[in-house]
Amino acid sequence: MNALLPLWSFVVRTSVKWPILQTLAPFVPVVALWWAVAAWGPFPPAFFPSPPDVVAKFISLMEKGILPEYLGDSVARLAIGAAVGIGLGVPLGLWIGLSKGAHRALWPVLLFFQAIGDIAWLPILIIWFGFGLTTMTFVIVYTVLFPVILNTVLGVRSVRIELHRAAQSLGASPARIVGEVVVPGALPNIMTGLRNGLGYGWRALIAAEMIVGTSGIGFLMFDARRAGSVTEIVLGMIVLGILWYIVDAWILAPIEQATGRRWGLVTQ
């Protein structure tokens, strides 16, 4: 056993030095199993491509410029959804959270429209806007917007009354209280809303691209189905997973770490 300790120590030191290894390591058995099943050969390669097939497809689509273009389109749509979702959802959420009247009037309506999930809008959107960018943009903005609004409202209402009172008795005007107390107090919830919204939005976008798209990763995968290229479909699935991991681990998680957790508003 003792002979293994230096090896273990090496693994720990390497993974501290290269955190990416910790992320990738769990995928080693997954890929190995996939590869083994493909090599064992119960399915024809056209139905069940092996890892090297997918890598080759990735290289060829990169060289042709199709993958970068489609990926760019999907990410740009996600970014627009995020921007509009934040730009519209946060102010609306603050207003509804702070105004009792607005809350009474709008909360049931919000819950109603949130329940009509994203692609349930597609049939009517196709009639109104046809196949294309407007419909896709509507779907992603719609999907991002509601979780952001609803969570912002919850965040605003979770700020303890003592903090409002403390700010008031230190001379803060209502407008300053919004900026100094309400927004930072609601920030952990706003981040949760954004995370959920983008997560749902990303799925909705791929679905919308499959049905009404003319570009994007969803379109790539659905188009590959017509051509019968399972390799391209699998590649699309992998790209989706990796992309979401990047958005979550490299953008959303660090923001949460630097705000709510640092302030003790979110438990580790």
Binding site: A166, S169, L170
Partner: peptide, 26 residues
């Protein structure tokens, strides 16, 4: 409420997102 009457709360009511210096300088 107004700044002529300072209040100290049982629950402290410090702003969690501000450093001690910024709380006192609020």
């Amino acid at each position: 409420p107004g700044p002529d009457r300072g209040v100290v709360f049982q629950s402290f009511a410090l702003f969690p997102w501000k450093t001690v210096l910024d709380n006192v300088g609020f």
